[in-house]
Simulated assay, not measured.
Amino acid sequence: MHNFNHAMLSRQGWCLFQNQDSLCAKVLKARYFPHCHLLEAEPREGISYSWRSILQGLELIKQGYIWRIGDGTNVKIWTGPWIQRAWSRQVITPKGSHLITHVSELMCPITGGWDEAMVRDTF
């Protein structure tokens, strides 16, 4: 029953993620995470039991969630879950003084593939 409950909470979180224009998603965003994305929402004092439970379901989604890079313009290098590894989906290299912020900046505009020199210099 415990695992089933987590699965249903994850499903509710996934529905909110997929339907961000729904009334429910808009109300929850306005109340609980007005200044960030759903996957960046964190528990705080005074939240409802239902929202706290949905946040637990979202934690399960985060464990298996990964960006599809596409053209890379919507994927942040330093904070986005875009690397496929079993133990972490984020970059472990310190940002340092690098000015690039999005994966698209690591790609060659002519070929659409990785700019290997830029990737090596960055990481």
Rank of each mutant, 00 (worst) to 15 (best):
I69T: 08
T101C: 13
H102Q: 06
I83P: 02
W67M: 03
E116D: 11
T101K: 09
I47M: 15
Q20F: 03
W67C: 13
I66M: 07
A86L: 04
Q90N: 08
R11W: 03
L23Y: 05
K76I: 00
Q63M: 12
E59P: 03
H6K: 12
I100K: 06
G96E: 07
I61V: 15
T79A: 02
L39R: 01
L106I: 07
D121I: 06
L106F: 01
I66W: 06
K29V: 05
E42H: 07
Q56V: 14
R31P: 00
R89A: 13
I92K: 10
H98V: 14
K62N: 01
T79Y: 07
L106T: 04
S10W: 01
I61T: 11
R44F: 09
S97M: 02
Q84P: 00
S22C: 14
F4K: 07
N19T: 07
T111I: 03
P43G: 06
A30K: 05
I110C: 00
Q84S: 09
R85I: 04
R89H: 14
S22K: 13
M107G: 04
P43T: 14
I110R: 06
G72K: 10
H102I: 01
F17E: 06
E45S: 14
N3V: 13
I92Q: 13
F4I: 09
S48C: 08
A25G: 12
L58A: 04
M107L: 15
P43C: 08
A117Q: 08
E105H: 09
C36M: 14
P94D: 05
L9S: 03
R44E: 12
I77L: 12
Q90E: 05
T79M: 06
S22E: 12
A41D: 09
W78D: 10
G46W: 05
V91I: 15
D71P: 02
V27E: 13
R52L: 09
S104D: 10
E116Y: 06
H35L: 07
L55C: 04
L28D: 03
W67H: 11
N5I: 11
G57Y: 05
R52M: 06
T101Y: 00
D71Y: 04
V103S: 02
Q84T: 09
W51Y: 01
G46P: 08
H37F: 10
A86W: 06
R85A: 12
E40S: 11
L9G: 05
P109V: 14
D115M: 08
I110Q: 11
